[in-house]
Computed example of a mutant assay.
Amino acid sequence: MNQPITALVIMGVAGCGKSSVSQALCHLNGATPIEGDAFHPAANIEKMSAGIPLTDEDRSGWLDSLCDELRTAIARGQRPVLTCSALKLRYRERLRAAVDGLGFVFLELTPQVAADRVAHRPGHFMPKTLIDSQFAALESPSKEPLVLTLNAAALNIDQLALASHEWWREHSLLATS
């Protein structure tokens, strides 16, 4: 029997479309969005706004908050969809330890596309100068369990959300058979 997916993380580097895909996916299936950026402490936002990459230590408390939020949503009977860069395997493992059956949708794109998107994104704290550090930290999840990898440059937001929705639904159906 396959593991049912109880919650999703929409992950990838800045500019890949995590928030937009999450919103569209939640609209499609009634899931509950959790915007990971909203849980960053002020010190993290200040560092990133100044063009300083976050360290593992900077991300530690943030990841704890995300784990708590996922557990709370599931305890309420919700199907959460978290947006989180989840760049490193150890971050994903920490999230997986908090929630059984956590699936990941990896929105993959090139550094050039990510930099272009971030440069044209108004009002966000993440500057284009941090794109290289995100790719340097990225450990691809593509060969990990319960991961769907999608080309975020080749598909539009609606296509990415629909592919995520169908994968989640299919995985849920397979788990019950």
Rank of each mutant, 00 (worst) to 15 (best):
I131Q: 04
D68K: 08
R92H: 07
G36F: 02
S22M: 11
P80R: 03
R79C: 10
L155R: 07
S164A: 00
L54M: 15
T6A: 09
E170H: 14
G103T: 12
R121V: 10
A73S: 01
L8R: 00
G61M: 02
A115Y: 11
E35F: 03
T55P: 09
S140Y: 00
L173E: 15
E93Q: 10
L82G: 00
D56L: 13
L82E: 00
P33A: 03
D56N: 05
D116F: 04
A114E: 00
A97T: 04
A75K: 03
A175Y: 12
T176F: 11
H40Y: 07
S172C: 06
D58R: 00
S140G: 08
L54S: 12
A163F: 05
A175W: 02
A115W: 10
E108H: 06
R76K: 12
V147A: 07
V9L: 01
V21S: 04
L162W: 15
A163G: 06
G103H: 00
H165W: 12
G12C: 05
R76N: 14
A161P: 07
R71C: 02
W167G: 06
L89E: 14
Q3G: 07
S49N: 08
N156L: 09
S19N: 01
L54K: 00
V99P: 03
R117Y: 13
N156T: 00
L102A: 05
T110L: 07
R76F: 11
S140M: 05
A154Q: 12
D64E: 15
T72S: 00
S142D: 13
L130I: 09
R90A: 10
E170W: 11
S65E: 00
K18A: 12
S22F: 05
L28R: 07
A136I: 15
R79P: 15
G30M: 05
K47F: 01
V21N: 13
L107F: 04
T129A: 10
V105Q: 02
R96L: 09
H165N: 12
T176G: 14
T176Q: 14
A86Y: 14
V147I: 08
W167Q: 08
Q78K: 04
H165T: 11
G123Q: 13
V113S: 11
P41Y: 02
T129D: 15
P53H: 13
A163S: 07
W167N: 07
T55S: 07
A43D: 02
T6C: 13
L54G: 13
L8I: 02
L28E: 14
D100K: 15
L107V: 01
E93S: 11
K143N: 03
L146W: 08
W167D: 04
P145K: 02
E144V: 05
C67L: 12
V147P: 00
C84N: 01
A75C: 01
R94F: 14
T110G: 13
I34S: 01
D158S: 04
H171E: 15
E46M: 00
E144G: 05
L28M: 13
A114Q: 10
Q78A: 09
A50K: 07
V81W: 02
S164K: 05
P111K: 08
D116E: 10
P141A: 13
T176E: 06
D64Y: 14
R96G: 01
L63D: 14
E139C: 06
S164M: 08
R169L: 15
A136F: 09
L95V: 06
A14H: 09
W168K: 03
